[in-house]
């Protein structure tokens, strides 16, 4: 009976194994969010490709970065638009 009670208490989120798991999950969000400069360049090139189907952009001032904040990782892109394309034109291809 005592064992049984102890078992219930140990499922409590304050057990050290749960603390370990939670800490690990947090730290891995950051660890995994790192992206190599080469991969980021590939991502940029592909982004430009897709976006230029719809609008003209300033390719030189395009900024793409991964942003780490607390428990979240965000992909932040700053893309200055020069001119919109006519949608009917770009859709005619399909």
């Amino acid at each position: 009976m005592l064992d049984f009670l102890a078992k219930i208490f140990n499922k409590d989120s304050s057990s050290s194994s749960n603390v370990a798991k939670e800490r690990l999950q947090l730290v891995l969000v950051h660890d995994r969010s790192s992206i190599s400069p080469e991969l980021l360049q590939v991502l940029k090139t592909e982004l430009i490709e897709v976006i230029t189907n719809y609008m003209e952009i300033e390719e030189e001032s395009l900024e793409v970065n991964l942003d780490n904040k607390d428990e979240q990782v965000a992909l932040v892109a700053n893309i200055p638009v020069k001119k919109m394309k006519r949608m009917n034109k770009s859709l005619s291809g399909s």
């Binding site: 057990s15 050290s16 194994s17 798991k21």
Partner: peptide, 14 residues
């Protein structure tokens, strides 16, 4: 069992 070490499921989960 005592909650003092991560178990198999915890590690697989992560």
């Amino acid at each position: 069992r005592a909650g003092d070490m991560m178990g198999i499921e915890d590690i697989i989960d992560i």
